[in-house]
Amino acid sequence: MAKGVRLKGIKVVTKPNGKRYVYRRVRGQFVSLPDLPENHPDFLRAYVDAEHYAPTDGTLASTIKLFIASNDFKQRKESTRKVWRRRLEKIAMQYGSSPIDKLTTDLVNKAIRKVSPGAQRGERTIWRAIFAFAQSEFLRSDNPAKDAMIGKTKATPHGTWTPEDVATFRARWPIGTPERQAFEVIYWTAARCVDAAVIGWQHVSDGVLEFVQEKTGGTAVVPITAPVAPYLEADRRLFLEAASPDLLFILTTTGKGRSVKALSQFVSRAARDAGLDSRTAHGLRRARAVILAENGWTPHQIGAWTGHESLAEVSHYTRDANKRSMVVGNHVGNSGNVKRFPS
């Protein structure tokens, strides 16, 4: 951009908290732009793209369409976008003809109550995001989803696999089967499916697996060939036998990676086939945390392995730990080994 040339139609709004919102006015509508210098390539690209902006007709459906195309939506994590897109499309189908500026908290409450109790919090978050976007586009002045209510539910944790469950699964699925491969990788690494589907030898350095988690952005650190306590050796050996020698730890029989959803369903189905109807991939993550807790690992050490940065979250995952084992078990004799990781 030539020196001294100013882009036309730019509007900047600064909130009391100091956060800036930048817009371009196109055919009577304000289109969101990234808060970057006007000569930044990303800003210029967004400025040009705004020219093709289709003004909203004032309905919820058109607002949702604009939201999905916005920088706000695009900057969210890919896993979040996939889930949200499905929900947004369903909301648009059910309530899309309603004027965005006429929607009320009561309507949002009714919409939220239509989903399962466990999904209501996430549904409210999506409605709040829709109206926050509508506010940023000057389509309405308030956010009726802010005060929306969700039902009180007691969270049902994923069932933690017991040692007996693990033995049953291994007896049903021997080393060499894709079911056993997925199981051993998740059981050893304690990775969520969203991470287990993409981690592999490219993330291993000096005998340690280190990867950034998709869900939280935090780092998980897991011993692969580095020294571990004796009680972990058997599981580690089985992991090494089962994991693919190729780039990814988990592959299909055709040598391709598994999608996150497919991996989760694959493990649950394999567990059911082994007679373990209530066991899931996420339950394996809990099981690894329990093993470490029962052998004297501190919350900080467990968090390093599982990637949890909140001690409260670690406590949530390890509340199934056998308290007797933690007090009088043989972890005392292993304490020296426990301290070897993390080094």
Rank of each mutant, 00 (worst) to 15 (best):
R172C: 03
I224P: 01
Q135Y: 02
A129I: 00
T125A: 15
K154Y: 08
A229V: 04
D147F: 05
G207I: 01
V212K: 12
G217S: 06
S205M: 08
T156L: 10
E137F: 00
A190W: 10
S141V: 13
I130W: 03
Y231L: 07
L232W: 02
G176L: 08
A191E: 02
R172Y: 02
A182L: 12
S205G: 01
A145W: 09
P178E: 10
S205V: 03
T153Q: 10
A148Q: 01
T177Q: 08
P178C: 09
V228Y: 07
T216H: 07
T125C: 08
G217H: 10
W173C: 05
R180F: 04
E164F: 05
P163V: 03
I186M: 15
Q213P: 02
F169I: 06
T125K: 11
I130K: 00
E137I: 01
I175R: 01
H203K: 06
T225K: 00
R192Y: 04
W201Q: 04
T168N: 08
A167T: 11
I126F: 02
G217V: 12
S116V: 11
D206Q: 14
I224T: 03
T216I: 08
S116A: 15
P117M: 01
D147I: 00
E137V: 01
F138E: 12
V228M: 11
G200W: 03
T125W: 06
T225H: 02
A119Q: 07
A145K: 00
L209W: 06
A171N: 12
W161Q: 04
A167L: 12
A134V: 00
W173F: 09
P178W: 09
G218D: 15
R128T: 11
P174V: 13
L209D: 08
I130Y: 03
P227S: 04
P174D: 08
T162A: 05
K146V: 05
E214L: 10
A145P: 00
V221W: 04
I224H: 00
E214V: 13
T160S: 14
P227V: 06
K146D: 15
G200Y: 06
G218P: 00
K146N: 06
E179C: 11
E123T: 11
A220L: 05
H158N: 14
K114T: 10
K152Q: 14
R172P: 00
T156Y: 08
A167D: 14
E123A: 09
K114Q: 15
I224F: 10
E184D: 14
T189A: 03
D165G: 08
R140G: 05
G159L: 14
I150S: 06
G207F: 07
A145H: 03
V166D: 08
I186W: 05
I130S: 03
P163M: 02
R172K: 15
P157I: 02
F169M: 12
G200M: 04
E184T: 05
T153P: 10
P174L: 10
A132Q: 05
V185K: 00
R140F: 06
A167R: 15
D165Y: 01
